[in-house]
Nucleic acid binder design. Structure first.
Length: 210
DNA sequence: ACATTAAGTGATT
DNA sequence: AATCACTTAATGT
């Protein structure tokens, strides 16, 4: 276990901290589609991504979803961090985008590591920063891009986190993530196909233009 | 061959 | 861009 953590986080953390992580953290594997966190759920641990990707969703009162951003390997969800300091509940839902492995660090260690390890403090701050930037980008996308552009961007994001230009999704899946209807997705995807930016198939899409 | 589910389409708001 | 109502196509049993 130490080797894997060392590989992904060795350049960030000193040896003593790596040892602590190995000692108190628990290795966890999530399969594609597994739910890692639910809205309103109590957060007891902070995840450090070793491999894979997680998508973070918000939900409205009717149960409709909206994708906020992806977390990739080497990242952490710093939102968890603020929740860990108090005893807050989760504002978001987290679902494994692909098969993912991560280390769960119990919340109680967060605070003391902040003062003991400078690299930890750096990491949290940095992580928080990138998270906020991702959120801003999502807001921009929502506010300034038309639906067809949003769909195409979403596909490109999927290609990135999956490390594969072939994405296994249905039009309905995309509709849920972007909070629109399947019919609209189908029509706009068709348009993108005509522009030769993508290739459409049942249950999978190939992105040609990256 | 049949049922199920995904995707395509025209019309309307 | 959303919704309805319907058609067509792909896929599993």
């Amino acid at each position: 276990m130490k080797e894997i953590i060392q590989q992904e986080y060795g350049y960030l953390f000193e040896d003593a901290l790596l040892n602590e992580i190995v000692k108190v953290g628990s290795l966890k594997k999530a399969k594609k589609g597994d739910q890692l966190m639910e809205i309103g759920g109590v957060i007891t641990a902070m995840p450090l991504l070793l491999d894979g990707a997680i998508k973070i969703l918000r939900e409205d009162s009717r149960g409709d979803e909206l994708l906020l951003y992806f977390i990739e390997k080497g990242d952490s969800c710093a939102m968890t961090f603020s929740c860990c300091m108090g005893t807050n509940k989760s504002e978001i839902r987290a679902i494994a985008e692909i098969d993912t492995s991560l280390v769960m660090i119990p919340a109680q260690y967060m605070k003391s590591w902040m003062t003991t390890y400078e690299s930890w403090q750096q990491f949290i701050l940095q992580s928080y920063h990138t998270r906020v930037m991702e959120l801003i980008e999502t807001v921009d996308t929502l506010a300034f891009l038309k639906m067809d552009e949003r769909i195409f961007k979403h596909l490109q994001d999927k290609v990135k986190v999956n490390q594969n230009e072939i994405i296994e999704v249905t039009h309905q899946d995309i509709a849920y993530d972007l909070h629109t209807s399947r019919v609209v997705v189908s029509r706009l995807l068709k348009k993108l196909e005509n522009e030769e930016k993508i290739e459409l198939h049942r249950n999978w899409i190939k992105v040609l233009e990256l």
